[in-house]
Design a binder for these strands. Structure first.
Length: 429
RNA sequence: GUGGGUGUAGCUCAACGGUUAGAGCAUCGGACUGUGGAUCCGAAGGUUGGGGGUUCGAUUCCCCUCACUCACCCCA
């Protein structure tokens, strides 16, 4: 069996990717269903964009200096010589789609959601994969900070439905193009004075992106950072008022939050509000979702001057901490004895399936005892018994496995019995 | 990209450098040819992640490599 042994090694899933097996898929579907239901209650509509885009889209949108673009993208050249990239995030695609289809001229509110795989070439660890899945929502054309609060409230509501506990909501403002430069400059100066206290990495960040010094975990850097100016003191009038309004609405929603001046999202495009919901039950990769406002992206893409805000939720991470009640499957196992009964049995299964009953049928000769053993193992809710006696009478046995009760009836009578009990199974989507 | 930890059956784990690498659970078959879960019996399942080295002898010690994992970093 050397073939199997080498196959096992060579045909393994690619590093950082994994299979979602039938066992786990139930909770994925529960998450997807709850997310859809929740978002649609707020007037969101699904928008499905392609898995790959031009590389340029992410260079412009995500930011040419961001880590994602500089070192984490799956970029390739197609046979037409185009440079394409498997999307590392979803926001630029939505913005592109809006401009391309002039969705800003439609009547519907510009509120979109999507779920699907994203790709980043990171070193895998707990809660971090190279192909991972995000639930993403975006709102366009709403300047009011009330919507900033509303999407946080919506995220909170979804997490509750998912049975997620032990979370903390962090909010901040990173200012805008008017006020952030002054703050960056002030930070740079402060960092310059404490240069000897900073690690080499942070000395570099002081030049390129001083806000990121706050992320550093080196003790001396943190100590230095505590003495640095806080962005709240540098916000322009508009940004400050926007931030205060956000807090007012969060209070009104009674969403507990913590203002975290060090919260600096790693994507270049954020303006004003940024936020994150973290879990205390995860390891280092503890952000369940994160997002913020990006008022300039659409305009920078050459589109209309329409503001935007959104967040992305990591599905693997949420599922790791969610406590979901997965609906139990209710299926009917077909137990037949002999070739004639097999034929009738198959017709019966066809009939029940046509009427919405899930039937488990296996084509292996078994005795009645073995059939029941198998049905039990498959956790079938019922067993349909078809043997010679039943065929003669056209009346079949139906046993409810949980109670052991068995009744006899025509297929129509049995269907009537099952109908009520099968109802409540979610329709396949 | 940088560190640390771990790789033995489908899963969880044993085996002092020394016979043919074992056990539990799971799987399959039988006891048991018209009614499940239990019990008993049996079978199958492994190039000990891969390669090299030390040794009379390596699952065990050393080196390389790959994978998984945790952390840095980054982020969902």
């Amino acid at each position: 069996m050397t073939e199997d042994a080498s196959a096992k090694k060579d045909l393994a899933a690619v590093k950082g990717t994994k299979d979602i097996l039938p066992k786990e898929v139930e909770s994925w579907r529960a998450l997807e269903r709850l997310a859809r239901e929740t978002f649609e209650l707020y007037g969101y509509r699904e928008l499905r964009a392609p898995v790959f885009e031009t590389t340029e889209l992410f260079e412009k949108g995500t930011g040419a200096t961001s880590d994602i673009v500089t070192k984490e993208m799956y970029t390739f050249t197609d046979k037409g010589g185009r440079s394409l990239t498997l999307r590392p995030e979803y926001t630029p695609s939505v913005v592109r789609a809006i401009i391309e289809h002039r969705l800003d001229l439609e009547v519907e509110p510009m509120r979109y959601y999507y779920m699907g795989p994203m790709f980043r070439y990171d070193k895998p660890q707990k809660g971090r994969y190279r192909q991972f899945h995000q639930v993403d929502i975006e709102v366009f054309g709403e300047k009011d900070a009330a919507v900033d609060a509303e999407i946080i409230e919506m995220a909170d509501s979804l997490l509750r439905k998912l049975g997620v506990s032990g979370t903390e909501t962090l909010v901040n403002s990173v200012g805008c193009r008017e006020c952030r430069p002054a703050y960056s400059q002030a930070l740079r100066e402060a960092a310059g004075k404490r240069k000897s206290d900073l690690c080499p990495d942070c000395q570099r960040k002081a030049e390129t992106n001083p806000l990121r010094i706050f992320d550093c975990k080196v003790e001396s850097c943190q100590a230095a950072a505590r003495s640095f100016p806080v962005i709240q003191d540098f916000l322009c009038g508009e940004c400050l008022s926007h931030f205060n309004t956000l807090l007012v609405f969060l209070n009104q929603y009674r969403i507990p939050y913590r203002v975290e001046p060090r919260l600096v999202r790693g994507l270049d495009y954020y303006t004003k509000t940024t936020f994150e919901i973290v879990s205390s039950h995860l390891g280092a990769q503890n952000a369940l979702l994160g997002g913020g406002r990006y008022d300039d992206m659409m305009k920078d893409f050459g589109g209309p001057d329409v503001c935007g805000i959104g967040f992305a939720m990591g599905m693997e991470r949420v599922l790791a901490v969610a406590e979901l009640a997965v609906p139990k499957r209710k299926s009917l196992y077909l137990a037949y004895l002999g070739d004639e009964a097999k034929k009738s049995g198959l017709e019966l299964a066809r009939y029940f399936r046509a009427n919405g009953v899930e039937c488990l049928v296996e084509f292996k000769d078994r005795g009645m005892k073995a059939h029941f053993g198998r049905a039990n193992k498959l956790q079938a809710a019922w067993v349909l018994v078809v043997g010679e006696d039943e065929m003669k009478k056209s009346r079949f046995g139906l046993k409810e496995m949980a109670t052991g009760r068995q009744v006899e009836g025509t297929r129509e009578e049995l269907l009537a019995l099952l109908r009520d009990k099968v109802r409540g199974i979610e329709a396949p989507c």
